[in-house]
Nucleic acid binder design. Sequence first.
DNA 1: GCCGTTTTCGGCCCGACTGTTTTCAGTCG
Length: 575
Amino acid sequence: MNKKEVAEALEEIGLLLELAGENPFKTRAYGSAARAIERSAGDLKGLVETGELLKVKGIGDSIFAKIKQMVEQDKSSYLEELHAKVHRGLVEMIRIPGFGPKRARAVHEKLGINSLGELEYACRENRLVKLEGFGQKSQDKILAGIQFLKRHQGRFLISDALSDAERLLAVVQGCKETIRACVAGSLRRCKETVKDVDILAAVRESGPVMDAFTKAKGVETVAAKGDTKSSIVLSSGLASDLRTVSEKEYPYALAHFTGSAEHNIAMRARAQQKFGYKLNEYGLFKGDKLIDAKDEKEIFKKLDLAYIEPELRENAGEIEAAEKGKLPNLLRMEDIKGVLHVHTTASDGSDSLDEVAKAAEEAGYLYLGVTDHSKTAVYAGGLKEQDVLEQHRAIDNLNKKLKKLRILKGTESDILPDGSLDFPDKVLERFDFVVVSVHSSFNLSRAEMTKRIVKAMKNPYTSILGHPTGRLLLAREGYDVDLDELLKVAAGEGVAVELNADPHRLDLDWRYGKRAHDLGVKVAIDPDAHSAEAFSVMRYGVGIARKGWLEAGDVLNALETEALLRFFQKRRSSK
DNA sequence: GCCGTTTTCGGCCCGACTGTTTTCAGTCG
């Protein structure tokens, strides 16, 4: 089993243990071990063989032994044992909002229900109404929850969530009782997909703000409405929570509702164990006495920590780094000097070269790398050799007219199934830079896919590896590839790796940011724009780069034009 | 099951809201 499969198996073990009514701390241990594996750098097999994995926080002897078996024997006896004991269908049931492990066990034990479908049928037969601890309202909610699951996958792209979030935030901010408000939760942490939108508001009076929120345009159902908290579901299927607090509580509440849960747990444990403080959404307390903090920064300071940016709050080493003053100086939007992966009407873009150039100029970029598809990508109108020459003439002419902006000649060359590029050398050498990407034959074995991409990366004309796993968030898994190996090759070859900023991709995954940094790999944050308007996705790319601990010095397109061209030339002349 | 400049055993974050209940369990974040 590979890293991802092991993480999923551990997660499933945690869920099954929870369903079996096990000690909650034990079940949590499996969940946190799963996340530790996801984040771990390097080859899992190697980490197991050397025993290095035992040094990872959250992995002890028992879980290590289970991982060892998964890696070496491609199975988990423990998971099989649990499957025999706990019905697999219960796992899907707990995806229903408001329906957790206890209720799943109850319907299983008392009504013999083993799947989502059976549960739906039982609701239709009114069998839950009479069940102890349930009732009419519970049954209605469960039925609605099942319908909800059928319509939506339960997670949303950051771009979709953000547009709803900004609209709801405006509604809250528009209330005269609101002092200030902010989007918190996973959206503030810039997770690549989110389950819901958390909004926090400091208010003079809560009631009218709650009313405005629950009556906002697009609200389909009001799932809960209380004095300080309301939950709604929009017609888009996206759920949103509003929490209201007083002005004084706001900084603590902002930290609390930004999370993540794991980060909060670690922060509270630190407050309690190191200082004897209690930390919650209302404040930091020594006994009953509030320890004043005017903003989030001061809360961290009181706990002897440097300020941790929201994107880093995943309990992935940020607290230890903050303690030692070793947090990264995160990339900022203004560090980005240009964009390098842009399509025009020459292939499958919707705006012409002139139009994207104008947009890049207006965005204040120093350079614009035009990278239309290569000839094999017929579905995307890939350029033939003659078309390339034509485009280059057009770019030369345009560059003569432009003042600050420089257009760079690039291509997004398909990586063919055998790992070769789509143009002969005599064409490749005419480009300033070459992005290489996989767009076909996704189903190779891990070894074959890795070999294919490594071969393409070793081509001396290759400058950037495009969307390294090919994943489409919420739609398609990436192809199976040894990403760690690709990063090592990138480091050795002087090839940059793309962090595709399109919210459907966000590929390189942020969990590999630290690894890229440690290996000295340059990361290119590319819009993969198919229109001038799509430059706006750069904000997601920068957010994900920040989440991956990247600094300006790690990012290829944070370089000025001359330095960027030197990077491309150095790569080419190294062979 | 994990973890330890308090501990190798005994802890493990904290509170809001709902629904089904007469005081609280379950769920969520």
